[in-house]
Design a protein around this nucleic acid. Structure first.
Length: 138
DNA sequence: GCCAACGTTGGC
DNA sequence: GCCAACGTTGGC
């Protein structure tokens, strides 16, 4: 069981859009590192849904429902998609600022490699961010 | 709107 | 294979 984080610009595709649709084909990834991460996803893996550009926060949890297959939006065989289903919206968004300000989260790719759109995340980091969202006070 | 950090492209 | 130029992403 692995954990991941995917970014989406809420202008283009927000958590609410995702929840309404009930499923998402995660297409359009055109970066090898992100692609490799998609390929490594297994059905049932947990995925944080992050709003980039606007919002700048982890907003929900999704789950991998279908593992990587060729991206139907291109003829280029290099690229793949996965299918995600929404699991639940976080009680409150956990902001990038909050993540940045916690010593235990300094190593995560969200901070270290800000341009990567699909990244692995350690279980402890996943749990910690989740615990932030359950803490009403911060 | 600006800029840092990358990734890609193309000339040599 | 190197590197300059350029494009893109995303935070501020």
């Amino acid at each position: 069981m692995n954990h991941w984080l995917v970014k989406s610009e809420p202008f283009v595709y927000s958590w609410d859009d995702f929840e309404k649709a009930g499923r998402s084909v995660w297409d359009g990834v055109r970066n090898y590192q992100a692609r490799n991460n998609l390929k490594a996803m297994q059905k049932g893996d947990w995925v944080f849904f992050y709003h980039s550009n606007e919002g700048l926060a982890v907003v929900g949890i999704a789950q991998v429902d279908r593992e990587a297959y060729p991206d139907p939006t291109t003829d280029d065989a290099r690229w793949v998609v996965v299918e995600l289903v929404p699991v639940q919206k976080l009680k409150r968004p956990v902001s990038l600022q909050e993540i940045k300000s916690d010593n235990r989260l300094q190593e995560i790719a969200l901070i270290r490699q800000s341009r990567l759109s699909v990244m692995p995340i350690k279980r402890e980091e996943f749990d910690l961010i989740l615990s932030f969202s359950n803490d009403e006070n911060t």
